[in-house]
Design a protein around this nucleic acid. Sequence first.
RNA 1: GUGCCCGUAGCUCAGGCGGAUAGAGCAUCGGCCUUCUAAGCCGAGGGUCGCAGGUUCAAGUCCUGCCGGGCACGCCA
Length: 585
Amino acid sequence: MKQELEQLLLASLGKLTGSVLAQMPAPSAVVVERTRDNQHGEFATNLALRLAKPAGRNPRELAAAIVAALPASPLLARAEVAGAGFINFHLAPEAYARELAGIHALGTAYGESRLGQGERVLVEFVSANPTGPLHVGHGRQAAYGATLANLLTAVGFEVAREYYINDAGRQMDILAVSTWLRYLGLCGEELPFPQNGYRGDYVHPLAHKLKAAAGEQLRRPAVSVLANLPADAPAGDKEVYIDALIARARELLGTDGFREVLELSLAEMLADIRNDLGEFGVVFDHWSSERALADSGAIDHALAVLESRGRLQRRDGALWFRATEFGDEKDRVVVRENGQKTYFASDIAYHLQKRERGFARLIDVLGADHHGYVARVRAGLIAMGQPGECLEATLIQFVSLFRGAEKIPMGKREAQFVSLRQLREEVGNDACRFFYLMRSHEQPLDFDLELAKSHTNENPVYYIQYAHARVASVMKQLASRGLSFDRDAGLSAAGMLGSAQEQAVLSSLTRYPEIVEQAAVNRAPHALVHYLRDLANAFHTYYNAEAFIVGETALRNARLALVLGVQQVLRNGLTLLGVSAPQSM
RNA sequence: GUGCCCGUAGCUCAGGCGGAUAGAGCAUCGGCCUUCUAAGCCGAGGGUCGCAGGUUCAAGUCCUGCCGGGCACGCCA
């Protein structure tokens, strides 16, 4: 509807160009908005106010000229000039009826558009290190990323969902050592557990798996493990200690033995993460591995590209990327003095690889603590000849858990953090996804477990689902009274839907495509949450104001066509959010 | 110290590219179940949009400064 009105305005401007207007304004200048107050009609535009100054015209006169030149349309009852020079559009009664028929005809496809024109977008999200279970912060990123990907798909982008696995480097070694030490404990060896090891309970099942797979073959006496190690914290340095322990494990197990421990730990952790996300309704198209990236030569390739463009410099024995020339605040090391490539090197190589795989736009969903990362990766992309705008980062603010008014302490190191799985088991997937998406991602989230679990009117989750279930209930009631619904009759009688509540429902209903577009373009899934609440509110109000199952057949069919339209849109919206749309509650 | 984000009703938060009288939920108070699910509806009270300037027909929205809060700034991963 909005788009059609914008087309009408463009046609009008076309007619005025050359006479009233010196030149044709850009199509992007034509913006139609919903009105806040329906005294002003359903839609309005400030077009004349915006054009008045450059055209050297009085805004009201210009508005009147635009209205006069407007082509006739079945959509419009009338357009009028108001206020300082607004143009208000009053819809024809058939306009809503036509849109309602569209909802019934399109079904699950209602709300989709071709805005994205098939542009390929890669949404990378979660990408948590596979060194422990996902926590509640990852859960927010998972819910956000999955819904953003759904929204972008709905508006016509070709979207790939990707998880980047940081499976190279020291953190994996620490995980392997942690598993091995727990395994040695199972074998009966008595050893202290390192301060800097992964102390969480989840390591124990890894050790059991290892014992089942390897028996006692990886067992080494505690004395040989501990011989001549530096002191652990607090007396010594926990970083130095863990590195010595890793070296010792390699020495005692051999390269193959150590790798066996590491591979098993990694595979188990990844399986756990994948399973957790799958249960949460978050599914990825690709799991991209950092090790595979290195093995494929992609990092060397990226460094070669930088080298060939003269962006690298050797300094103090290390190889530096001159990032400051591309907007970063300092230069970055890509190869350390000891010959090891840095994390940064694999990050830019990974992003270059994404581009080379054919993605026009790269969206990284990151935790808020990663904001420094964006400028340097973008600098890397530009230096490698890629457009800087292709990379877009959405920073997701942190989650605090509350049980009522009491804040739950979190901290990975203390091993008492709340995992996503625990959260899901306690409050359920629907409430979980809803609460994660309820607030703007730019806003820190206070997640109240008591509220999410409560089945009372304080809990906003059920409000929307209830509206959906109520429609299902009405249809059951209809059948039990021996009546049936005639959709075509209902749609052709839609002109009877003239009450204030019916108009409010229709108005809200027909906004859905605008909301989907807005939520996708602004990367703002919470806009959809708020919209669905508003639609549910309009529906509940209507429900309380009028009986749908009335004696008069035409009116009954029209009302049922309307509430079934509401149900369809609620279901479409909830599906984008990853929340279920129940038939009964 | 430098950079990014945030500051709107008692609480938690929406406010599209600047637009008409700044909105929801919760909480508080008052109503609505012999009728399609009361997990619902209707009504009332509640605001110096952190502060001070600036830009203009128009500022919660844009710009500058200040105050307050969060986060990040390694040849770590």
